[in-house]
């Protein structure tokens, strides 16, 4: 991976985030080194509607919950999970 260029991730959005942003998926360019929190910062800058939900968002990478400190790899499937309400 070339460290000098940002990496683009497709971020999946659901429920209220999908509605607030107006799309089910958005591409986000994350400066290297790409971490979960860098991705959230970049996403929030591009889509301010996400900001109010930042404290409750859990990050999922490749369909597993991960801490925001996670190091992202090109091609990772990233999803933002607001507090779930199944059942």
């Amino acid at each position: 991976m070339n460290e000098s260029h940002p990496v683009v991730f497709t971020v999946l959005l659901f429920s209220i985030l999908r509605e607030k942003v107006g799309r089910a998926a958005v591409d986000v360019a994350v400066p290297a080194p790409a971490t979960g929190s860098a991705l959230l910062d970049a996403l929030e800058a591009a889509h301010p509607a996400v900001a109010p939900y930042r404290p409750v968002i859990r990050l999922a990478v490749n369909q597993t919950y991960v801490p925001e400190s996670v190091r992202l790899t090109e091609g990772d499937e990233v999803a933002l999970i607001t507090p779930v309400s199944g059942g």
Binding site: F14, I81, V84, S85, G86
Partner: peptide, 21 residues
């Protein structure tokens, strides 16, 4: 109810809807 990524949306009789957090 806290781990599985499923979300419910309420549809009320007054016509309003609301995502349940």
């Amino acid at each position: 109810k806290v781990q599985v990524p499923i979300w419910k949306r309420e549809h009320y009789t007054d016509g309003t809807t609301e995502w349940v957090q």
